[in-house]
Amino acid sequence: MAQAGNAYYDSPRDIPAIIPVFPLEEALLLPRTQMPLNIFEERYLMMVDYAIHKDRIIGIIQPQAEAVDTDQAPEKLYAPKLQQVGCLGRVTAYGETGDGRVLVTLTGICRFRVVKEILTDLPFRLAEIDCEEFVHDLIEGLGEDQVDREGLLDVFRAFLDANDMEADWESIAKSSNEILVNSLSMMSPYGIAEKQALLEAESLALRADTLIAMTEMHLASESSDTPQTLQ
């Protein structure tokens, strides 16, 4: 069973078949994580209002990499072709700023696959979805015992050191393996293809291993780009 705010999701039958989808480049939502959003575009303000009055569910999904080519015509950028897999989020916090924006928090429920987009006169996009292949996302902590936590923390420390950054290690120590893996995946500074690979990983352990490999490659690349001085 998955919980998001006051709602519980026991099976894909608890999830609506048609949802609004929010295309976000290099953005990742995963089960039981939270994503804060600052909404200001009129079409997405209408999308949030639609979701609030329906099931409070919005699908976060990336555009396909070729769809964000800045050389494309504006109409192509308005409705880029979407990836096939995204993640459902329930609006669990909502606030109006007084200057026309709304601040919302989405809590991840489970991943979904796009069956087809729905033709509509609405200014935002709707899609028919299927969650059956991701039903295991509804089980909290599934596969946590197979995660290489120490390997993930080691590469995370190396990343922080390389970028002169700090972390709240007390909070990290208290985090479950699931929250640790998914939160670090969301925070990772990678592109569309890498974020999609993390999203579509078949298991929590595979997601952790994928993130470790990506970060090691990133660190190695940064190291090779650093000019060496002779002593």
Rank of each mutant, 00 (worst) to 15 (best):
S175R: 13
D121W: 05
M35G: 07
L29I: 15
Q228I: 04
A197T: 12
C110G: 03
P12L: 02
D99V: 07
A65L: 12
P36Y: 05
A201P: 08
L88M: 02
T70C: 10
E132G: 04
I212A: 06
E166F: 06
S188E: 06
E75K: 05
P189K: 10
F22T: 09
H136D: 08
G86E: 03
Q34C: 09
I212R: 15
G141A: 11
E128G: 05
F22S: 01
M214W: 11
P80M: 01
L152T: 11
A67N: 01
L180V: 05
R111F: 12
L126V: 01
M186T: 05
V102T: 01
Y44C: 11
F22A: 12
F112A: 10
A158P: 10
T210Y: 14
A73F: 04
S188F: 07
I192W: 05
P123Y: 03
A127C: 13
M1F: 14
S185M: 07
E132H: 08
A173I: 15
D137P: 08
A51S: 03
D99R: 06
A2H: 12
T210M: 15
P80Q: 01
I212S: 13
A167P: 03
R101T: 07
G98T: 00
E66G: 11
M46Q: 15
L45K: 13
Y44D: 07
Q228V: 09
L199R: 14
W169R: 05
A65G: 05
R157C: 07
K76T: 00
I18T: 14
E75P: 03
F134S: 01
Q228D: 01
P63Y: 04
I139F: 02
I172P: 11
C131H: 09
L204Q: 12
F159S: 15
Q146F: 13
I39P: 04
L24K: 12
A127G: 13
A205Y: 06
